[in-house]
Design a protein around this nucleic acid. Structure first.
Length: 103
DNA sequence: GGCGTGACCCCAT
DNA sequence: TATGGGGCCACGC
């Protein structure tokens, strides 16, 4: 079994809830978990071992920037583009239009 | 039991 | 508009 803690697992579950062609922000995720630990959320992704099972590439920053990614921010941008998200200069365009809320 | 780190966010200038 | 600084939470050792 994975040595993933409840908090991390919850983050992964939220990511799995994100439909294709949509993205979310760390802040929204933290709010969904009823906490302000965006840093902990990012930490969970950084230690994410289920990269193949969890679409952590659908998480972007509130500013629309891509942020970091295990395979590289460039790959992340490419994946998002493939999903249908418009990206320009490595930043998401109309983030408010593609953002997905867990509410 | 305590400290540092991390894929960040918000505010003010 | 862009930049700098401060602060927050959870995990691992």
């Amino acid at each position: 079994m994975s040595r993933i803690t409840g908090f991390n697992k919850k983050c992964y579950e939220l990511l799995k809830l994100i439909p294709e062609g949509k993205v979310t922000t760390y802040s929204e995720m933290a709010k969904a978990l009823n906490t302000r630990a965006w840093r902990a959320v990012g930490n969970a992704m950084a230690k994410n071992k289920e990269l193949v099972v969890i679409p952590c590439h659908r998480v972007v920053r509130s500013d629309g920037a891509i942020g970091h990614y295990a395979l590289g921010s460039e790959k992340k941008a490419q994946l998002l583009l493939k999903e249908g998200v418009e990206i320009s200069n490595g930043k998401v365009r109309n983030l408010d239009k593609f953002i997905h809320r867990f509410i």
